[in-house]
């Protein structure tokens, strides 16, 4: 890259300057000199902090280094030999909160206030299907529901997925008890045993319920 020609264009040539040199380069000439560096020694405590931090770093890597293998989520296990356990989900908690299950499973469609979405997802508050007997809501949650269904005088036509394979008996019992006792609903509690019983009775069923089937079952 030969920039000689360009350079000469830019090189400063005082003989061509028509202006007073000082006013032309006022800004550059008034500056202090280019910065220099002093030679003060660093404060002693900076070294102390640095050494302490490096010690801490060693400790932290030893504790949370996960033996530098391709293992993920090795947090509490630290150096334990059975590191792989970290990959396996922990046992579900023994006490299940119905409100929590509702928030994570049901609220997306039926809404946090149990009112559903008008014309699309039916309400649970005051719904005859939720309130009439304990088995019907268990059946619906276990196997899902499909096709037109009349709730509180309005017909809804949509699909509710099955949750039987995804929720435990305890969770279904807790969430149904919650649904049957919230937003003005007030009915009997549902226990895990009742869910277990219904689950056993209908274990061959692989498809969603329809309104007619449910009505036939519970005359």
């Amino acid at each position: 890259m030969s920039d000689k020609k360009t350079d000469s264009r830019w090189r400063f040539r005082p003989e061509e300057e028509k202006h007073d040199i000082y006013s032309l380069h006022r800004q550059a000439l008034r500056e202090p000199p280019e910065p220099q560096e002093g030679l003060e020694p660093p404060p002693w405590w900076l070294w102390v902090i640095s050494v302490l931090l490096i010690f801490w770093a060693g400790f932290y890597l030893g504790r949370y280094g996960g033996v530098f293998g391709p293992y993920v989520h090795v947090l509490e296990e630290g150096r334990r030999t059975e590191r792989e356990t970290a990959l396996v989900p922990k046992e579900p908690e023994t006490t299940v909160s119905g409100a929590e299950v509702y928030a994570r499973v049901c609220a997306a469609c039926h809404q946090p206030n149990g009112q559903g979405v008008p014309g699309v997802f039916p309400p649970l508050a005051g719904s005859e299907w939720v309130l009439k007997d304990p088995e019907t809501p268990i059946l619906i949650v276990l196997h899902g529901l499909q096709g037109p269904i009349e709730v509180k005088g309005t017909v809804y036509n949509n699909v509710m997925p099955e949750w039987g394979s995804k929720l435990s008996n305890e969770e279904i019992a807790a969430v149904l008890t919650y649904v049957r006792n919230s937003w003005g609903n007030q009915t009997a509690e549902i226990t895990p045993d009742m869910v277990e019983k219904v689950r056993k009775e209908t274990q061959e069923r692989k498809t969603h319920w329809t309104q007619e089937e449910l009505l036939k079952l519970k005359k």
């Binding site: 660093p42 902090i49 931090l53 770093a57 932290y60 890597l61 949370y64 996960g66 293998g69 947090l75």
Partner: peptide, 29 residues
């Protein structure tokens, strides 16, 4: 952090982030 990457990798980055105290304090002084 907390993601599906080898734990040592995340830990190394955490350590390096904390060691950033050294250059930062130095420059600040």
């Amino acid at each position: 952090i907390g993601g599906p990457l080898p734990t040592w990798l995340i830990s190394v980055s955490i350590v390096a982030s904390v060691l950033m105290f050294i250059p930062v304090i130095t420059v600040a002084i």
